[in-house]
Design a protein around this nucleic acid. Structure first.
Lengths: 205, 205
DNA sequence: GTCTATATCTAGATAGAC
DNA sequence: GTCTATCTAGATATAGAC
């Protein structure tokens, strides 16, 4: 076991502990004592690997945004005609977030700190939002039968509606008091796309 | 000046100070010292009106969700044919949030604390999300020419896309690194609705 | 590099004068 | 009801032994 490996292990250990604590208590609500305890190291070790609390937080969020929580649409989901693939795609996105408590907490953390750590929210946009939008746009453009004039804007609309479901139902706990049907939403969205394709086909024969 | 009025004034004063501090620093990042200083009262006065920090925070968020930040679509925006009223409505929603820094901070605060204060996020859903959805649904149903089978699901989709714009562009500061055209979005959304209306009319003559 | 022990400060909350 | 002054706990960060 080399020194370099030991150092890497400790750093990873610390980041794992920090992730748990920051996800559970937010930035200001997290103490370096508990980070050290959860990571299984002493406090000076934490300060040996990271300059201070801010530095640890920035390093953590950037690492997590790059390495975890990236939604990558699988090929088998994207395959087939749009009346099958689009509902699959929408269900997959919503379920990915609704089933993953850590994902929801990470979104809460990044949005909650976006006023005080704007560059971290930009990292979130760069590594999570923008690739998601690009994938959706690619999907739309691989289905020319949609016939959309502005695939980027449509991608925003589709993604936005799915994010809204996750935000209001799960992140904001609206499911308990204002349950919205996932199935109805997916059906309405799919129908909207198919209807649009039909109309565009009529208008541009 | 009666005692009752004096008490009301102090409570309002405290809530105003607390609002500023909580919006700027979040729940855990806000100190009761600064709340008192910003409100222009002493700390024991704060504790005389509110049981503790949590009680103050709950009272504040509930009051603000009920009294401020409610989006009420104006009649002159909703009037006219949908190819005029819908773009106006979308632009109004997005601009309302993009122009109001306090609104953005309030959203950050509620989402950021939604894991630790779930009942406050439900209050947010009850007083801000649900009425917004209902208004959109009412608008759609007052325009039978849309011909939607599921007006609630369509209302979600429209609102969701607008919220997504605000979230990614302004709250998460995506505008600096991934600018999305408000005009393109509004045009695409409007066209989607008009196309859908056309198709529905064809399929149900 | 890592720990025990500690310095320093600020937090939430309150006692007691008026 | 409101203030000054204060208590106590827990926060960030580090000194110094190993």
């Amino acid at each position: 076991m080399t020194l370099a490996l030991t150092k890497t292990d400790k750093a990873t250990q610390i980041l794992n502990g920090a992730l748990q604590e920051f996800l559970a208590h937010g930035y200001a609500g997290t103490s370096m004592d508990r980070v050290a305890a959860t990571a299984g190291v002493s406090k000076p070790t934490v300060y040996n690997h990271f300059q201070d609390k801010e530095g640890l937080f920035r390093a953590l969020v950037q690492k997590i945004a790059r390495e975890r929580f990236q939604i990558k649409f699988k090929a088998e989901i994207l395959s087939g005609p749009l009346e099958e693939s689009l509902p699959r795609l929408l269900a997959s996105m919503v379920n990915t977030i609704s089933d993953d408590d850590d994902y929801q907490d990470f979104v809460r953390l990044v949005i909650g700190e976006s006023g005080r750590f704007p560059e971290l929210s930009r990292t979130f946009v760069t590594y999570l939002v923008r690739p998601g939008l690009q994938q959706m746009q690619d999907y739309l453009e691989q289905h020319p039968e949609f016939g959309f004039a502005d695939s980027q804007a449509i991608a925003q609309i589709i993604l936005g509606s799915a994010v809204y479901m996750c935000l209001t139902q799960y992140i904001l706990h609206g499911h308990d008091i204002m349950p919205l049907s996932k199935e109805n939403y997916i059906e309405a969205m799919t129908r909207l796309m198919l209807n649009s394709a039909l109309s565009e086909a009529i208008q541009r024969p």
